[in-house]
Design a protein around this nucleic acid. Structure first.
Lengths: 189, 189, 189, 189
DNA sequence: TCCTAAGCGAGACGGTACGTCTTGTCTTCCA
DNA sequence: TGGAAGACAAGACGTACCGTCTCGCTTAGGA
């Protein structure tokens, strides 16, 4: 089966790379399955044996990313630093600019945004550990705030060609978002 | 011509209402022009005489909203309160829950989010008045932060059936976002 | 609605003619819906609003023919001449050589043969009037014999470019098939 | 190599039997190569090592039959009895009802009919020995008549579960077809 | 004993046609 | 004359089969 696997992996890689290139060129919505097929030099039926549709291919690529992100993020100690998750995301993104440009920039349609948002929200909710029974602000709302802020800054960075470095972006996040978060946590304790 | 105008307006209203209903039922992306036609009981060609496509109809509805929002927002003095724009948006949204539910909730696809984001960014950029030549954080990034935070909270409120009232949501925004913003402005001065 | 009808008829005629041409060129089985579309200069969806599939188009054409045949055949008195139905078919076919070439020749696949056979069998069964309770040979079998003989001769004529005329072919049919039939009917009476 | 041969034969038999079963269940046209593979428990590539396509498998089975038929038929003296070929075919078919049911009944598509017709036409043409230079009716047409009549009756018998026996069917053939044939031959002499 | 050639199952792959769906344009009819 | 009705071309979609192919496994029959 080793050979089969190798061929399968090769085909999937071809498809994924073709999709990325095309998203970057025309934007996800305007990319056609046939475009991907032509670019990857892969048959129509082959595509559909691997992925249910265009979105499934996108999500497969996204899942590879999120898997890695989850791994890296798992290392940081929870609770120590409210900005840690955002920083991890920024570092991760800066380290994989091509992928993020395709998936999360202006051209990487709503689908990815939605999934990325869900992923982030999940990571953040776990990190924030709402340990009080009746917090002054609902935990979901705080998580939503962090997620939105993180994604907002990340989107800005992507659309501005990843200026400076991940540390700088994290610093900005700290300046803007951390004061409010720490005040809230302090008050709550 | 008064009669003609009345009929035109009637047709447009029918179309807009049908679109809203359908967005709420199935989500913007899954709504078909034909769906709208059937629901509004309007002929295909009639639709296309009024709007270029489905998105144009959505944007027409959106523009009515944004026009009003722009008016209300114009009243507040710029610079006085960094959270003022967000508060204005929240009050506005709480006052028009059905429309916002359809346009900006989970079901109101990417298109609206994009336009709403652009509108907000524009209002906020004007409000923040970047009066320094070399700010520590780019003005666009700050605007992006505010926009994302505002939209994040708004989306959360929509998806949680507009809990409490607009003031409460604005208060939360102040707790979370304002400390960072004021610190930044102070440092900058 | 008159205009709509005219357009519809035009489109259907275009499709039918294109199909006939292509059957004659490549044989029914090798004709693709797309071939018909290209030849008729008609859109894919238009085709499918008119016909469920390629076979439906063929059958529509076939039905026009069979309708006419049924009309012509209805005129002849039943029972008078056992070869009358065959002669009617031959005359009919000789008068519409292009259509029969496409539909019933070697190139006009199994589908038409099947339907033509059913049509003939039906006409013949009605014509033969099996008025005895226990005939020496089942009526269905006699009808099958006549149908097969008629179609056999007709197929031969088509594949040999309609030699002589319909009367000659009917004469041959009489020489070959009628003696047996009349003997059977006589014995039976 | 004896073992190899045994395996090859086994595989081919499995495929042929599976095809027959499936033709009987769904009709030749609706049978898929994959259906045959699954039923015979044979790999895709194995199939294509043995047969070029589905039709080749069918024809291989058909050829076995026709070989035997040709042998049996070769025994009869040519010219003695115009109905002899038909009778031989009927006896042969009644002796192999399952195969004929699958191959030549309503479910055994056009392909087999075509080949069977060709085979019969060949046998009959040889049998009829057109010894005149200018016959009143073309020899090909007479052969076509005999072939069609024979196949017509055979098809009827198959679709009616082989009623009576081969002799009865041959008798019917004699009643219906022979008078015309003998008259023609007499006139011709 | 090994080993090597064949038959074979598994299934990835490119290709082609299919029938469905939605879009935006167009023409005609009606009030 | 504006709106309703709806035919139409365009073209992407996901499905179904096809015939080719590469790959390992097994199993004889000859070394």
């Amino acid at each position: 089966m080793a050979e089969q696997d190798r061929r399968v992996r090769r085909t999937r890689r071809l498809l994924r790379d073709a999709l990325f290139e095309l998203i970057f060129e025309k934007g996800y919505d305007r990319v056609t399955v046939q475009d991907v097929l032509d670019r990857a030099d892969v048959g129509r039926s082959t595509f559909y044996t691997h992925y249910r549709d265009k979105e499934a291919l996108l999500l497969a690529a996204f899942d590879e990313l999120s898997e890695d992100l989850r791994d890296e993020f798992g290392a940081s100690a929870p609770g120590a630093d409210p900005a840690a998750p955002a920083e991890a995301v920024f570092r991760f993104a800066y380290g994989r600019q091509p992928a993020f440009r395709a998936l999360c920039g202006k051209r990487g349609g709503e689908v990815v945004q939605r999934h990325l948002r869900r992923l982030l929200a999940e990571l953040l909710t776990a990190h924030l550990r709402p340990d009080a029974a009746d917090p002054p602000v609902p935990a979901g709302l705080v998580a939503e705030f962090c997620t939105s802020a993180t994604l907002g800054l990340l989107g800005w960075a992507i659309d501005n060609d990843f200026p400076h470095d991940a540390g700088w972006l994290a610093g900005t996040y700290r300046r803007l978002a951390e004061p409010g978060l720490t005040a809230l946590l302090a008050e709550h304790a």
